[in-house]
Simulated assay, not measured.
Amino acid sequence: MSYGKFETPYLAAENRYEKIPYRRSGRSGLDLPAFSFGLWQKFGTDYPFETQREITLHAFDLGITHFDNADRYGPPHRAAQKNFGRVLAKDLAPYRDEIILSTKAGNPIGPSPYLQGGSRKSLLASLEHSLRDLGTDYVDIFYHHRQDDSTPLEETVGALASAVQQGKALYVGISNYSPERAHQAAGLLREAGVPLLVHQPRYSIFDRSIERNGLLETAERDGFGLVVYSPLAQGLLTDKYLETIPEGARATGSAFLSPAAITDTYRQRAAALNKLAESRGQSLAQLALQWVLRRPEVTSALVGASSTSQLDHNLKALEFPPLTDEELAIVDEHGIHGTGLNL
């Protein structure tokens, strides 16, 4: 089905719930798709809206019901929310009850002290703007985007709880919190009657932080799920950089991936992982996605896409047999924590 013309009403694929498994988020009652769709990159004003629309609707046709946004996503800030809001109004409004829509606040979006941090002022004001951007009365998950040690955690948690109590969010989450701070937040939210649904950390074969710092155990103990971002390590866990840095690739113009990361050591490790993937009949990206989903604490992995074919390719990771102990040992041998990343 083509979504390229607004004159054609969008009808979601009838078999969309047969295409992807759903996993329970911690000890909540909410299921999320194994892959969630992130609008972190390529959903600002620098990419064609019609392409964004086509990818978004294709994701929903594939059973991806969770769309992850933030006030910071663009460029400029808030652009990704506004673009998704256009798709929601035009195409997805009849399916709003079938969509998990999340947004975040707290990462700086301007020089004002009220456009950043974990204060009640910053979080609740941002949520109001986000609801207008998205054209919806509520979001399903409202996150604090980044730990703010300068603000009392009780104030931050109180703002998140208020969002639920006011009917502007159904669940709350946190992102980029240390395990200790996450445990404290989970306890305070539990006392407020608004349990912590989910934590969003970075996790990949090249970034083992949550295995090393105890966050996996904290999630299990406190009953929240994990929605992991950057499972492909900003493209390092694909075959894109095995030989050279292609013109126009992310490493040539991204604040999150430098050409300096593409070292001989990185290429040696990535090539070994790619060889393992090929022996399994899959791509390195599919291996990397399958690897993060092997953990029961991980509810969902965030993926983006610049085309519908890329999205199809990534979701095929779900079709391969589980990694064996021998294969996991090979991943551990070559998937060294910190490879290519500024950790």
Rank of each mutant, 00 (worst) to 15 (best):
R280V: 12
R280N: 03
R280M: 13
R280C: 05
R280P: 01
G281P: 12
G281A: 06
G281W: 12
Q282C: 15
S283R: 10
S283C: 06
L284R: 04
L284W: 08
L284G: 10
L284D: 12
L284I: 03
A285I: 05
A285V: 05
A285S: 06
A285H: 12
Q286M: 04
L287Y: 00
A288P: 01
A288C: 02
A288G: 09
A288L: 01
A288V: 03
L289K: 08
L289C: 04
L289R: 03
L289S: 08
W291L: 03
V292E: 09
V292A: 05
V292P: 07
L293G: 00
L293F: 12
R294T: 08
R294N: 01
R294H: 00
R295M: 13
P296D: 13
P296S: 13
P296H: 08
E297G: 06
E297T: 13
E297N: 06
V298H: 07
V298I: 13
V298R: 11
V298N: 01
T299K: 03
S300V: 03
S300H: 12
S300K: 00
S300I: 09
S300F: 10
S300N: 11
L302K: 10
L302D: 07
V303G: 02
V303C: 10
V303E: 02
G304D: 10
G304Y: 06
A305P: 09
A305N: 10
S306E: 13
S306Q: 13
S306D: 14
S307Q: 03
T308L: 00
S309N: 12
S309R: 15
S309L: 14
Q310K: 05
Q310I: 06
D312W: 08
H313A: 15
H313I: 00
H313E: 15
N314H: 15
N314F: 14
L315T: 02
K316N: 14
K316M: 14
K316C: 06
K316W: 07
A317W: 03
L318Q: 01
L318E: 04
L318C: 05
L318R: 05
E319M: 11
E319K: 05
F320Q: 04
F320D: 05
P321T: 05
P321W: 01
P322V: 12
